[in-house]
């Protein structure tokens, strides 16, 4: 490209995706895949645990997907459930093929505020995906934190993500409790909803922090269970989902009360949200 063309060519800006190549792919459940992506221009996408990208498959549209990779290094990792046109096309991408990536966007998990305290990570279903970078960061720096706990619930045993890694995290010092809503006789673990794991977990209610992601109803009941255990909503952080379409706080779709989820979230202190979540259809 000549110098004149360089001069007139607009700088891409936050609405223009960068091309990433699928370098690894693993099926997690019947409809969920984990993709590893490497940037075509070579520069690693730096992010903080809890942030998301806008991910697109050629011509099929764009969706907000939390980053699930290791903030310390390695490829960009996304765990995606095929529930619509765009997510199905993303999940169908084969190694060597390309996807579009914008971001990262959003406010991360405030891990530094939790230093010195017990940390409860509570996940429901695919809600474990946005928590994985936080778990990896907590384990990598576990000397700075108190007891690390993961409470994880899925609908059924075959709906659980990262099953091999759950054991690895446990071996590295995180107490991992898994429950499912229903299971056959081959399942020897807990059966029941996630909030019911809260009273079994040991933590110092006066200083512990909790990181939540899952269906809103699961998070509400978890917050109640945590409150009963003495952990107040100021120390509960939750990652929220709304219809993020731009990531740049310009499109309006992800409004949640006086906030924009892509800018003020997706991670919030539950105390910031409870007033708004109490209003139906807000």
């Amino acid at each position: 490209m000549g110098a004149a063309a360089e001069l007139t060519r607009p700088r891409p800006g936050p609405m223009v995706p960068a091309s990433f190549t699928v370098t690894g792919k693993r099926q997690e459940t019947a409809d969920t895949w984990t993709l590893e992506l490497e940037p075509r221009d070579g520069a690693r996408l730096e992010f903080a645990p809890g942030q998301f990208t806008m991910l697109s498959a050629f011509g099929a549209g764009e969706v907000p997907i939390s980053i699930s990779g290791d903030p310390g290094g390695g490829p960009l990792v996304h765990t995606v459930r095929a529930v619509g046109l765009a997510t199905a096309a993303i999940c169908a991408a084969k190694p060597g093929e390309a996807l579009g990536v914008r971001g990262p966007f959003g406010r991360p998990w405030p891990l530094e505020e939790l230093e010195g305290a017990d940390v409860l990570v509570v996940a429901g279903g695919i809600g474990l995906a946005p928590l994985r970078p936080a778990i990896l960061a907590l384990l990598a720096g576990q000397e700075r934190y108190g007891r690390l706990r993961l409470l994880y619930g899925g609908r059924a045993p075959d709906q659980l993500l990262y099953t091999a890694e759950l054991e690895e995290w446990s071996a590295r010092g995180m107490e991992v409790a898994v429950t499912v809503d229903s299971a056959g006789p081959e399942w020897l673990g807990h059966v029941g909803v996630v909030p019911r794991l809260v009273h079994r977990a040991r933590f110092d209610p006066d200083s512990a922090g909790a990181l939540l992601c899952g269906p809103e109803v699961m998070m509400r009941f978890t917050v109640s269970a945590l409150a009963q255990a003495g952990l107040t909503s100021e120390r509960v952080r939750a990652s929220m989902e709304r219809n993020m379409q731009c990531g740049t706080a310009h499109c309006g779709h992800c409004q949640l009360g006086p906030t924009l989820v892509c800018r003020d979230g997706p991670v919030y202190a539950w105390s910031e949200l409870e007033r708004w979540l109490a209003v139906r259809e807000l």
Partner: peptide, 8 residues
């Protein structure tokens, strides 16, 4: 805001 589109 933090993100601005050069076209805007």
């Amino acid at each position: 805001g933090a993100h601005t589109d050069p076209a805007d």
